[in-house]
Design a protein around this nucleic acid. Structure first.
Lengths: 171, 171
DNA sequence: TTTGTTTTGCAACGCTTGATGTAAAATTGG
DNA sequence: CCAATTTTACATCAAGCGTTGCAAAACAAA
């Protein structure tokens, strides 16, 4: 997962996966069939990881949860994070969405996870137009991840995140 | 430019460029040196195109100009547009930023073009905190382009654009 | 241990990629 | 019209890719 995250799908060679996993190319193909299916498994794992994290964050009251998400850009990276690699799913959209339908569906599900999390949080706080505003928040979040990708630094998304937070507060 | 736009850098083969230009692979290499330099020329051309368009749009009063940018998502595509290909520069960030420094610089310049356009427009209207808010607008714009990439349809970015426009209006 | 199955190591395959060498064809300049 | 230069066409190169065959090694079951 880390290797695909860092380098993307195409740029990750089977030789790199050998080294990263220490498994040997023959073992990987026996276990997963081919590179594509292995990547699908990677995306599923990524989804589950974030899903678990979101469940924790959005257990907070709606406004606090949303605030916490964007406050995360100001916080230092945890030690095991891949700095400036952005989000694996967002990266994947730009690389594979056009060619791979399975991946497209997986990314869409991931996006839906975020959107409903936001929408539920807003609705819980009695915010009107929760659906449209959740759509905005997802887009803004993904835009912030684009900043990180370009600048190569998580801090680059901080100004944007601040405006988003104050916008949410006015709601 | 269209071919790189549609398929990205890596997925665009020299054979595809042959067919798209009708020039013959040897001619392309004689003229541009290699695929990388050809792509740099493509990005420069894209930059110039958008630069000229922005000069027109931002000749309007600040608030109208910004509104027009995001209103563009609701408008039908011009006939020669590549629907759901998003923005060549944004796409490129996610594909090449990590490996190619020249491209990285070109995309950064493109992003700066948008940011100063927004910041100038806001400042012209006497909006406070123009710089931070311009940063937000660029990020939000790029996020909207991500929506397009994922959904495969320009209309997918409309709800988000609407929230952005109303946010700008409250400023 | 013995038998049957799974996993590993190694080499190699077929294919596609970006890029060239070479010589004919087209263009240019006087 | 002719000589000098540029552009084309065609075959081809070396390198890297995902993937597989095969046999040895490791493991599991009894």
């Amino acid at each position: 997962m880390m290797t695909f995250w860092r380098h993307g799908y195409e740029a990750t060679t089977t030789r790199m996966l050998e080294e990263a996993t220490g498994v040997g190319i023959r073992g990987l193909f026996n276990a997963f069939g081919n590179k594509e299916k292995l990547f699908h498994t990677v995306l599923a794992r990524y989804f589950d990881t974030v899903h678990a994290q979101l469940a924790q964050v959005f257990a907070m009251p709606g406004r606090d949860a949303i605030d916490a998400v964007f406050a995360g850009f100001s916080a230092p990276d945890p030690p095991d994070a891949i700095s400036h690699a952005g989000c694996l799913m967002v990266n994947t959209v730009f690389e594979l969405e056009r060619t791979d339908e399975t991946v497209r569906a997986q990314v869409a599900a991931y996006r839906a996870l975020w959107k409903t999390s936001f929408a539920d949080a807003l609705a819980r706080d009695g915010i009107s137009d929760a659906d449209t505003r959740a759509e905005f928040l997802v887009g803004a979040l993904w835009g912030a991840l684009g900043q990180i990708k370009l600048a190569g630094d998580k801090a680059a998304a901080v100004p944007m995140a601040e405006v988003i937070r104050s916008t949410v507060r006015t709601w």
